[in-house]
Design a protein around this nucleic acid. Structure first.
Lengths: 344, 344
DNA sequence: TTGTATGCGTTATCAT
DNA sequence: ATGATAACGCATACAA
């Protein structure tokens, strides 16, 4: 059996390579009847174009890279990442792109990836996540000229990026707690080098201040987005006797609740707890965690869209997308009995 | 600035393309002096060969795929996976292979991946994880002829695969508990469709039976490798008043310990608990979890080695590697005070 | 609308 | 040891 190439398909369909190519790639300017014939042959033979050849000739690999700057341990224990990758992977499939993962953990890998990926032309573009506000990778990438988008804050101005409305979301949390009559708010933040963590703190502070209930600095504890970290932070915070704690992620919310309970306090009667994300951990607590929902998977979808935009039409300027957040009220702030149907 | 290609490098080094190529690829048959000159030019210019061109001409993409059959949610919350990917990724870097992730979650994706990946020649081979004993993907792959290796049990005979010695590990656990004088053993298993889960149960049972302490079927509960699942399973098991519980993973061990404690029982006095993996969750309990250690990252390393073996020398038959496990004694079976230095 | 011819950047074969 | 040259499989500008 002769190797199955475009040439062979064209032959079987009785057309030229170019026509076959056009038919297969859905370009127009090919008679419907001919197109059918070609596609039939493709169907029957199971032809799939050779990735490398296509890439070489077409100047495009149809591979998108996901550059991950956290340790594998972090990545693979963070439900946020699960949702994000879910979204990215789904969008890639839908757009016929292959997703390639790059773990950027090792010190030497840090400057190897840019050079390799960029020049090698393996990927058409990169989605970069979880950078810190002054991540060198970012300017390395922008210098290199490879198309890329950020999930999270773009340290630099002229970059495409997607992010949830962290300020707004945190403000939702703040106002919800205020409405419940809480006045001694505390918050467990993520690592403040992380812009999302910083903005959630900022949004929370501002919203409180706007209502004349300034946040006591002693009731702010920085943690690391893990349950354990949040637990430890909360233990400290409890000295200040807060009546509400805003955790910058659901996972941390779980830790906060555990600490509160272990201190012999009741949630929400003594301390109301609210998280951020609306991912699975929020449902695993008792009572369930009130939280600020962000559409994590959609973050991934948008990231892919933005990236393809940069890849396909480099001339249109980069843009930043900010996805809305919503409040999801559960038992950790309002006992079930007292709650109307606030969430559809 | 003219495009940086092999041609250009050759020109700058004053040699032919072929020589430049050989020098760069470390092939022999090129004078040391010449090689130096070429490599210098490479160094200075920062030349990196074009992936697609190399792939097209060389019949090899140097991309390895990791096919994941679990939901993203599962994958990104399982510390086992973190370690595995860590190992795989590291080995890929070390061997100059690019790692590409394929999430095989959607129903339609299931038969799309094989066809696409295989024919497209994008990857040289695939590492497949976490299949069930009769996973259709496995025979689809073996039919297709693409080189691949399994992490876990190979349903079929003639496949390369890596796995920890699950039977042996479970036996270690069993004997340890017996030595401690426990006689009413219980176990929380993983999903028994999963071969690793099945073997851990089997190994545990057998080792007990061999010592004349058969496992009471009522003291076996199947869970799903999650903490919550294990918690629920343990609640059931406790009715049978076991004095020791073997959890088929550390993560489940955490759930088991929580359940035991919540039942007002003491670990290890009332119930000894032992896990499997020796991953981070084992250290997060109080007391820390005794466990059967498997070298998760090495699993990944070996998988890559096996795969490259299949890719580069298809003629040598596939082989199965089984990695040894070791017992790591901690407080959940032996109080610190009573413990010698068993772990270095 | 279709076909022809050329180029993509590298490796591999075959001389030299 | 080195160089010329032919693949590799496809896309695309151009011609028809």
């Amino acid at each position: 059996m002769t190797k199955l190439t475009l040439e062979r398909v064209a032959e079987l369909a009785g057309v030229s390579r170019s026509t076959a190519s056009r038919a297969i790639n859905g370009q127009d300017g090919v008679r419907p009847e001919i197109r059918r014939r070609v596609l039939d042959v493709v169907e029957i033979t199971g032809f799939v174009p050779h990735a490398a050849a296509r890439s070489l000739a077409g100047q495009r690999s149809n591979i998108l890279g996901l550059a991950i700057r956290q340790t594998t341990e972090q990545v693979f224990s963070d439900p946020f990442f699960a949702g994000l990758v879910q979204g990215i992977s789904g969008a890639c499939n839908a757009q016929d792109q292959t997703l390639s993962l790059f773990l950027l953990q090792s010190a030497d890998g840090e400057d190897r990836l840019p050079v390799r990926m960029l020049r090698t032309k393996l990927v058409d573009g990169l989605i970069v996540t979880a950078t810190f506000t002054d991540d060198p990778l970012v300017w390395q990438l922008s210098e290199s000229g490879i198309p890329f988008v950020m999930v999270g804050e773009a340290g630099q101005p002229d970059l495409s990026s997607v992010e949830a409305d962290n300020d707004g979301g945190a403000a939702l949390a703040a106002r919800h707690l205020l409405e419940l009559g809480r006045r001694h708010m505390a918050t467990v933040t993520g690592p403040l080098r992380n812009s999302a963590a910083a903005r959630r703190l900022l949004g929370f502070e501002r919203a409180l201040a706007a209502e004349g209930v300034p946040l006591d600095p002693r009731l702010v504890a920085e943690a690391d987005f893990t349950e354990e970290g949040a637990y430890a932070a909360t233990v400290q915070l409890l000295d200040g006797a807060p009546d509400a704690i805003f955790a910058a992620s659901d996972r941390m919310g779980v830790g906060v609740m555990r600490a509160v309970k272990d201190a012999g306090l009741h949630v929400p009667d003594d301390v109301a707890v609210i998280g951020f994300d609306d991912l699975s951990p929020a449902l695993e607590t008792e009572p369930q965690l009130t939280t600020v929902r962000q559409e994590v998977a959609q973050l991934g979808t948008v990231a892919v869209d933005l990236l393809l935009e940069r890849v396909r039409t480099p001339e249109v300027p980069p843009r930043r997308v900010e996805l809305p957040t919503t409040l999801v009220v559960r038992g950790s702030t309002v006992p079930t009995a007292q709650r109307e149907v606030l969430v559809r």
